[in-house]
Design a protein around this nucleic acid. Sequence first.
DNA 1: CTCGATGCAAACAATTTGCATAACA
DNA 2: TGTTATGCAAATTGTTTGCATCGAG
Lengths: 155, 155
Amino acid sequence: MPEKQEQFKSLLKRNGLKVTTQRVVILEELSSRPGRHLTAEEIYDLVKKKYPEIGLATVYRTIQLLSELNLIDKLNLDDGYVRYEIGSKGQEESCHHHHHLICVDCGKVYAFQDDLLETLEERIKQTMGFEVVDHEVKLYGHCKKCLEQSNESNS
Amino acid sequence: MPEKQEQFKSLLKRNGLKVTTQRVVILEELSSRPGRHLTAEEIYDLVKKKYPEIGLATVYRTIQLLSELNLIDKLNLDDGYVRYEIGSKGQEESCHHHHHLICVDCGKVYAFQDDLLETLEERIKQTMGFEVVDHEVKLYGHCKKCLEQSNESNS
DNA sequence: CTCGATGCAAACAATTTGCATAACA
DNA sequence: TGTTATGCAAATTGTTTGCATCGAG
């Protein structure tokens, strides 16, 4: 999909960044895995397959840059790694900013979108005078599959 | 307040932990600063004033222990430090589980409680079969004070 | 007494940085 | 051609761990 490559190139240019193969490949790898939450090391390994000369430091530097521009989203699952996924601005599809459901049993991460948060933010603005511009919501619990499995073993 | 000390001691015992001066002092320091979000290093410095022999490793070990028992709450502001504050179980007052408003201008962290989240969690249970048991909500934005200051300079 | 808890220092691991080289604009 | 980005390796730093000692139960 060369048209996607062109998109990334103009995306970089639009944000005042130089277009390099490394940056385009990193964006490609992330964007071809929406919903996956990849660590720097994982991105490094993926990119190396397409561009073996890349260094880990470049991955870190690029990730940080893209994150500051909100082209990719940062996610911290408190497992010692910072993870990244393609964000709404880095994707043509309007995949809205979403939140995460983290299963404490199997570790799987689910995404969900919600508009209820807007009501909450409105209320906060009213009561505390605090104007919310971004949010990070992590809900921990038991996913459907794990709930079913534990029900089976209990019956 | 020696009655608070007694409380911490029984709190530790109740959770199957040995009562040591180090652990009690760490709990004291945290509980005398509700709403403050302290790093391990900061806790270490505070505790050293009352108990200079303590080692940083003990602080880390104790913090981890108390965090697993939910006596203290972990907070990650993505500034490279993991922070801790006394939790509802570690305090006699019923200070409900709360969420954080983080001002992107001055860095100040405000707390708020909300019940709207329960509606959200109910909805998630219905639509996705995911049962939420814990949550971490961080809202980033501009606090009242910083909003007022930027308004003044604009007028 | 016995096992868990501590202090110290060394080990770890994710991330950052300095610097010479390469390559986009 | 000049500045920005890269690769490599070394440095940094929050956190963990091994081990001998100490102290709560």
